[in-house]
Each structure stands twice: as C-alpha cells, then as structure tokens.
Design a binder for these strands. Structure first.
Lengths: 350, 350
DNA sequence: GATTAGCACTCTTGCAGGCAGAGTGCTAAA
DNA sequence: TTTAGCACTCTGCCTGCAAGAGTGCTAATC
C-alpha cells in the first residue's frame, strides 16, 4: 500500500495548498501555519485537514518546518515544483516594458548598453543584476586599422558596427613604418571586412599556411598581425554586475560569513562567469534554486537567467541573483523581457 | 585651579597610557580596562592609578566607555590625538615595497595600472581600496586621429603616451569624407601635438574666435572637432574601488542598514568621488577619522588618502576605507608608498 | 471514507530574576 | 602621590515561567 503518491499525482488540493503556502512565504518571509492556510487558501478546509495534507507534503520533501511548532516553509524541491507547474507568470505591465525599452536604446555604446541592462535588472527586481558581455564571434568586422604608437607598439582598431569599436595594443617583433602599417590594413580590409570574427580568423590561418612562400613578407606580417588582433578579445571574460548591495536586505544576520563569500565572488567574478557560461547554451529562462546552480556560494540563493541573441546567435546571458524566496512570477518575465530587449538593441545597430 | 590641563599639556604618563590603550583597542577590538593597562602599559602603576588618569582622559573627551563597567575605547578625538602625536609609523619592510613595485609596472595600460593599485591597497590592508583615476589636463597629447564609422559618426583617437590611448565617438553635423577627416587630423596634429590637453583646448578656442573669417571651413570644422574631442573626458568622473567586501568583516551586526548604505554609495561612487576630490589639493597622506570626512555614510569609518603625481602635478588620489580602529601605523605608509609608486609608474612612460 | 473538533504536546519568544565577572569611582591608608 | 580596599554598576548568561503559535493524534461527525 502506497499512501504517499508520487509527486506527479499530487492531488489538486495539495497542489493548491502548496501554491498558497509558497506564495505566502515569498510575500511574508514567515513560516506558514495551518490556520493561516485554512483562511487564505480558498479551499474551505479546516486547519486540521490542512495539517494532514501538510504532513503529506512534508513526507514528499516539499515543505519543512524550522522547528516543531513553527509552520512550514518550502524546501528547494517545493520551490522547484512551484516554479515548474504551479506558478502563474504575470505578464509585465506594458508601461513597464516600455520603460525598459526606453532605457535600452540601440544607439548606446555596447558597454553602456550592457551596464544599463544590468542596472535595470537590479533596480526593477531589487536584487543583484548581472550581464555576461556579448561575445563577438558572429559579429561582422567592418573595418580594421593600425596606428603606430611607438617603435614596436601598434594600436589595432576593430570597427564592429556603428556603435562599437574595440582596440588593442600589440607589441611587434620589428618596427614598421606608418606606410607599411597602412598597406597592411588595406590588405586586410580587402580580405576580411564583412565577415564575422570566427571566419576571419579561420581564413587568416588558412592563408598563412597555404601560401606562405608565395607572399611578400609584408603581407605575411599583415596576416599575422590581423590574426593577433582578432584573437585576443580582452573583454571576453567579463560580466557586468549591479546592485549587489540589495542582497544585504535579505541577509539573515546569522550568516555574515556566507554573505562575505558571496561578495568576494562578485569581486572575483570567476564563479559568476562560470555559472552564466553554463546557461549560454540553454534556451529561454532558466531557474536555479538553492544548490541547483552547483556553486556552493549560491546555495542559499536563487538565480534566474536568460540568454540573449543577436542575429539569431546567442551571444550572452543575463540574469539576477536573489533570495530563494524571490517573487518568481515577476522576476521571470523581467529577465525574459530584458534579454529580448538587450538582444534587440544590440541587433538593430549593425 | 585647573586640574584637567589642555590637551597639549597632557602628561607624558597620560599620553603613554592613551597610546597603549589605542594600540590595544586597535589590536583586540575590545574595550580596555584599567587592569589590563596596568599590566601592559609599562608604567609600573597600579590599576587604581590608571583609573584616575583614565578619568582625566575621559573628561578631555579622548576616551569613553560604552557602559559603566566595560573599560574604555578611544573617541574620534582620541584617535586624532593618537594619529597626530603618538603614532610611530613603522616603515614598510623593503620586501613589501619591492612586491608592490613589481605589481605596478610602468608598462601596464593606465586602466590596468589603476585597477592594480586599488586591488593592492585592498589586498594588503584587508580593507576597501580606492583610486581616483588620473586626470589628463597636464598630459601631453601625442597624436590625434579621426576615423569614419558611419555617415555622421566619427571615432576620435587620442594617443597620450605609449601605454595609453583614449577614444571617443562624436556625432557630426554633416558628412565628411575620409580624406577630409585625414586633412583635419593633419591640421590638428601640426598644431597641438606635444602640448597638454588644457593648453590644446585653450589654443583651439583662441584660434576659433580670432581667425574665424580667415579660415576655410574645413579647418574651422577641424578646430571645432578637435575641441569637442579634447573636451569630453568620459572617464574623468571615475573612481576604481576594490575589496569592498572586506568591510563586512568589521561590520557590527547591529548596523546592517548602515553597511547597506555604504555599499550603495560604493555603487553610486558619487560620494566617494566627492571625498577624493576634496583630498586632491592636499599634500601627502590625509586621515579622516569618523565624521571628519563630512560624509554621513562614512561616520563609522576612517579614510586614509594620498595624492599621486605625474610630472610634478597631482593627477589623482588614492586611499583606503576601513574601520576607525584600523592599524594606522601600517596603513599610512602603505597608502603613502602606493601613491608614490603609482605616480612613478605613470610618470616613467611618457 | 473524508473531514473536523478537541486536546495534549512542543517549541519559540519575551520577560524577570539571579549570579558571576569585569571594571569603575571613591575613600582612606601608606 | 600612589595604592589597597570596597561598594557599586553594568553586561552576559543562565534559569524559570507564561503566553502564543502550531503541530500530531484521536475520536466524533458528516
């Protein structure tokens, strides 16, 4: 005799109860008792019946009580079930969407745009916002220029689109004159402009191998230089964070040390970057509750992410970090929309 | 009869006592009682005598007790006296200096250098580090170039020295051809290279007024463009922070709200910038204890700053923020040396 | 068979009292 | 002038107690 049915056979009543419980706990932050639930769940059951159902939920590992007589709080599994099948997402107010759109204008520089997105996520959700900076592998190179800085240093300017310019300083193995540099740039521009960085690089490597002996040395140098220029994307490993301080609001005073570690991770960024990079291959909004992220530091937090696309390619991920009891019904659409708007803004500028 | 002499007549005994007290409190973080002091102050006095002297110190407002029987802690005035006339600065270990020097290598890009300095301050002191980014008014302009991005957008490249390049995107009022832009750049380069930004700007404004009618319109446009390019230093209002999370270590759990405000200020940066800009005109290390900084947010903290120079001009300020009971004898020389090293690194690259 | 009322039980929270420890201020003696 | 001694005061910690909230179980009810 099985008296605790598998989760997918949860009765409607139990589901409704869990839902009310999670909603209440997210709102109030206090363990929810049977009495409160019997009043608010809209099920017309007495507190005693509620208690029976709650005992079942506890057996299934969906809720737990901090101590004998303190009401129940959702477990990570409870949040998971809630998010997966009980949550009703509120569509965002169209004014809110409009306001977001206005702050992510396509004519902003990429860096400003990314920082705005992160800041918006944080401001709107009152939690920490984060944006993985866009990768450029599929961005078209518009123009490449060299500029001599000193004897063996040259500034490389890569024009990606009308709002984005990257530059890098390269050390050369010998001195090139301004004229030579200009020739090299012309040579490269003829060959690579209009392609994305990946294929530019492939082509350069191919040319370098294939026709090494047939070319004059300047052109060979040009190819090498171009290859170096395209190779090192100095911003590639970056993530822009915002509003970390909001997390202090949710901090239980017990765990200052945990919080410290989290803030240290925010400074280091490596951990956050790892998390975001894992999400880059997924589609749509992803939610990590508690330990699901696989990063110890985030055990007590939830993370909501969404990838954003430019020209049909996912180029980055953004999201928020907040307490496990965050208002998922609001946060999910916010993250979703922000990802779309950021993608759109980056896209409409080529 | 005056039985509490003015501060500058403090007896040697009392001074010695205050010094031991402050040192002990900085080390332990606990109020210091008369018994402890009688053992550690090296004065060969009984606890009872110590108590008499401490009562005098309390009358003078140099120490206070959190409650009736809890020993004394220094007041801000006590710290001030301690820092001004009791503190013996430990010169830094020469290995430490060497290690700092190695991490502030002159061949790094300015931005990297500044971030390193901030990170070092934070890592070495275990508090929050901050660096006001260098102003460029007195930096020599080496070269100026224009590059067309799209119809009315042009990228301006200012080469400052061999490790620093700035660029800005400007909107133009009409379309200029690449050739025209090149001519304009040549015209400007002939005229402004080798001068600092301030005099470049002055000269351009002068020329613009004086010979407006005698010039052809392209040259006038060049001057206007150059003026715009030199005018807007987009990084001018920036400060680089590091290691804010260290402050969580010293946080008394009572004041999470205070801490939150401080972290918010770190994100905003405006307040920090204001503080640092006040210090830019002073010479040498400055110390603000508690409210002395004049910024509410920093009431419970102390700030140690020092300006750094390039070519004889102060171009920025750096410093640390930490608890009032920070180890001043170590922090002061660290801030001092870091300022000198950063200045030296920036200087030796022109 | 499902639901509910009732009751004993458990745990938290807040408050009051008691006690040890640390440190002070004052006074009188050295 | 310095010190010993003593009364005093505060904190921190424990204990006990009562109220409140919530539970689990059982027996009665629909």
């Amino acid at each position: 005799m099985v008296d605790t049915p598998p989760i997918n056979e949860l009765s409607d009543r139990a589901r409704q109860l869990l839902r009310t419980l999670v909603e209440s706990y997210i709102r109030e932050g206090q363990p929810v008792g049977s009495r409160t639930l019997s009043r608010t769940a809209g099920l017309d059951l007495s507190a005693a019946s509620i208690r029976n159902i709650m005992a079942d939920l506890e057996d299934m590992g969906l809720v737990s009580s901090p101590h004998t007589s303190a009401g129940r709080i959702p477990t990570p599994a409870g949040y998971r079930l809630f998010v997966d099948s009980l949550l009703e997402i509120k569509p965002l107010d169209s004014r809110e969407v409009q306001s977001l759109r206005e702050r992510l204008r396509p004519d902003l520089e990429t860096k400003v745009l990314v920082e705005s997105a992160s800041g918006l996520l944080s401001a709107v959700t009152q939690m920490a916002g984060m944006v993985r900076v866009p990768r450029h592998e599929h961005a078209e190179l518009r123009q490449i220029e060299f500029m001599k800085l000193s004897e063996r240093r040259v500034l490389v300017i890569l024009v990606m689109n009308k709002n984005e310019v990257q530059n890098r300083i390269l050390e050369l193995d010998r001195d090139y004159s301004a004229g030579e540099l200009q020739q090299m740039a012309n040579y490269l521009n003829d060959r690579v402009v209009g392609r994305d960085l990946v294929s530019v690089r492939q082509q350069l490597l191919r040319e370098m191998k294939a026709v090494r002996e047939h070319m004059n040395s300047l052109m060979l140098a040009a190819i090498e230089l171009g290859e170096q220029a395209v190779a090192a994307d100095k911003d590639a490993d970056d993530v822009v964070l915002a509003g970390q301080f909001h997390l202090l609001d949710y901090a239980e005073l017990t765990s200052v040390e945990k919080l410290r570690q989290l803030f240290e991770a925010f400074t280091e960024k490596r951990e956050i970057l790892g998390l975001l990079d894992k999400c880059i291959s997924a589609q749509g909004v992803q939610i990590f509750i508690g330990q699901e992220s696989g990063h110890r530091i985030l055990d007590d937090y939830s993370v909501v992410t969404a990838p954003y696309e430019v020209g049909g390619h996912v180029v980055g991920v953004l999201g928020v970090i907040g307490p496990t009891r965050m208002p998922y019904d609001r946060v999910i659409p916010i993250v979703d929309i922000t990802a779309r708007l950021l993608g759109a803004a980056l896209n409409s500028r080529s």
